[in-house]
Amino acid sequence: MKISYKEIIQALFALFLIILICVLINNISINLTRTGIGFSFNWLFRPASFALAEHPLPYSPSDSYAWALFMGWLNSLKVIIYSLLLATVIGVFIGLSRIGKNELLRVVSAGYITIIRQTPLLLQLMFWYFVAFLSLKETVLKPIGNLLSISNQGINFLGITLSAEFSSLLLGLSVFTSAYIAEVVRGGINSVDKGQWESFRSLGLNDFTGLYTIIIPQALPAILPGLTSQYLNLAKNSTLAIAVGYSDIYAINDTIINQTGRPIEGFIILLLSFLFLNLFISNGMEIINTMITSSKNN
């Protein structure tokens, strides 16, 4: 049997990877024995002994670390889903304004996009939290009577209360992502042949009906992949919750690592949590995608 040079290269590469991993593991085990920590997941079932400001299911400090992590995961999921919806609504609106007939509206939405895209998300989040909410101090804003009240405690809308931490994260993430979604929507609609607009106009359809029935269905295949990657970015960006004090999966993980001094286990848990979140979002988008393509074929 002859061994080709390609197999030799692969074998050498695999050997190199194995050696690299072994050296790293060796270093880390030396460091762990030196500090006397070791590697195990038994601590997951010990009481967490820290309080959580927000938890969708009953939780008390005597519950286990695992339960606290699950609460964090649910909190993440909650803020991701709400921001995803709000960002899509704002983003589609801005994206359509950007290509609309009204020149002034186009200029204003272009200004919105550049301001949002050329400043860091973390700065925007801090702005929402410290300036928009916390600096209200004692004042309570009631823009539309008793239906909506905004204070440094958060937002109360039709009896639903949202904490200031959750609200600033929701608004910050939605506004930031909406600027990117707007560009995705604009790109998708521009990818549809200009002749399509002319033909539906010559059929006597108005722009709204034409956009809804003719243009958007053709633009969707170009929009959906971009939208999916923006949703995944949003999910990853939601970990900046720690800057405004919202207890998402990353913030709780951070607290636990500080308490237990186990960064490696913490990293593995975070990695798995995000694997689940990503699968959740990309599978959801895949289902939407097949729903749209199958309805088009019928």
Binding site: N27, K236, T239, Y250, D254, F267, L270, L271, F274
Partner: peptide
């Protein structure tokens, strides 16, 4: 698939361990 903040945080913690 990992958020940047996690990579940076664990970079600060884990690089010395490795």
């Amino acid at each position: 698939s990992v958020p940047l903040i996690a990579v940076l945080f664990f970079g600060q913690l884990l690089i010395p361990l490795f």
